[in-house]
Amino acid sequence: MATLTEDDLQLFVDAVKHYLKATSKQEPEITSAFLGDSSVIAHEFNGIVSFMGGYSGQILVSMPEGMLRELLVLQHEHDLSETNLLDAVGEVANTLAGNARKVFGPDLEISVPTRLRGAQGITARVRPRPYVITFRWHRHPALVCVDLERR
């Protein structure tokens, strides 16, 4: 399998920036981008979308509870339950996957987001060293893990 290019990875950076800026009028600060290891250190709320077709693997969006609560409040949502927080992180993951489909082509198949509370058991599935993009929005750290390979 072929490695993603820098432009492929920039798609995910740009998608995170666009999503948060559109939602909150404040763009996040990208704090680092690096090759992780097989176990990803994630936050409390995680959305995972799997890819098939010309690419295989997954992307993981991982955010702390406080960040998701602030995003929901900015969207005038009053239900700050765990279910709604999980829905919110799943929506972010799904949005990133939709942006990937626009760039990688309509043959890219994407799953419905899997939403998880807690970081236990989150591991890379395709790459021994997935791409990790960390960012900060307001005071909250978060990350996107891109664990994709081009077929």
Rank of each mutant, 00 (worst) to 15 (best):
L71P: 06
F51C: 12
N46E: 09
M67C: 15
G47A: 06
H43R: 10
L71C: 02
S56K: 13
G53F: 05
G57F: 02
S56W: 01
N46P: 15
I59H: 05
G57R: 05
V73T: 14
M52P: 06
G53V: 03
L72P: 07
L71M: 11
Y55R: 04
I41L: 11
G57Q: 11
M67T: 02
G47I: 02
I59T: 00
M63T: 02
F45Q: 08
G66S: 09
F51G: 09
L71E: 07
S38D: 15
Q58W: 00
S39R: 12
E70W: 01
Q58S: 13
V49K: 12
G47C: 08
M63R: 00
L60D: 06
I59K: 04
F45H: 06
R69W: 01
S50M: 14
V40Y: 03
S62W: 04
G54N: 15
V73A: 13
S39G: 07
P64T: 02
I48D: 12
V61D: 00
V73H: 09
S62T: 04
P64V: 00
R69E: 15
E65Y: 01
I48G: 13
G47T: 03
M52F: 01
E44M: 14
L60K: 05
G53Q: 11
S39M: 13
G47P: 03
